[in-house]
């Protein structure tokens, strides 16, 4: 039995199959983004105009389930399928980066109508112009990396 497991793990790691499970997870997430219509520019407009509960319901119930899951993982000291511990890292408590970066992100979110996940899902649905939006986002990240030392964090 032990030998079978070891052999299996060797094959998996040799073929770089560890990541296959993340491919399927991503597909699952992509389907949810499309079918719940949260990737729609119109749904983002409804949200920022407070004219529909939909986006608030999606984000709110996602957080509720996420928070309950994390509480259970911590409470019962749940391990990964490989037996490794599950860890959480507290984020640094310096505020300008969250206020300023968050606001800049929000401005862009309302302009494109899509955050990074929905951008990718939209690409998949055939809205190929979102490749340009994504390249711009990569460029934005690159410029941040170049000038970050001059910004307040």
């Amino acid at each position: 039995m032990t030998m079978t497991v070891t052999t299996y793990q060797k094959v998996v790691s040799h073929l770089h199959l560890e990541n296959v499970k993340y491919l399927f997870s991503g597909m699952f997430f992509g389907v949810i983004l499309v079918k719940s219509e949260v990737l729609s520019w119109y749904r983002i407009q409804e949200m920022f105009r407070f004219q529909s509960f939909h986006m608030y319901g999606v984000i709110g119930s996602a957080i509720a389930v996420g928070a309950l899951s994390i509480w259970l993982i911590k409470r019962y000291n749940v391990k990964t399928i490989h037996g490794d511990p599950i860890t959480f890292t507290p984020k640094a408590r310096t505020w300008p980066r969250y206020i300023l970066g968050g606001t800049l992100f929000g401005l862009g979110w309302a302009m494109t109508g899509a955050c990074p996940g929905p951008m990718a899902a939209l690409l998949g649905t055939g809205a190929s112009v979102f490749l340009v939006v994504m390249i711009s986002a990569i460029l934005g990240t690159r410029v941040y990396g170049m000038i970050m030392h001059k910004l307040p964090h």
Binding site: R97, G101, T103, L104, F105, L107, G108, P116, I135
Partner: peptide, 14 residues
């Protein structure tokens, strides 16, 4: 410009 702000802001905010 919107895409740029998303990429810049997301990394700045972490």
């Amino acid at each position: 410009v919107g895409g740029f702000l998303v990429g810049f802001g997301a990394r700045y905010a972490g």
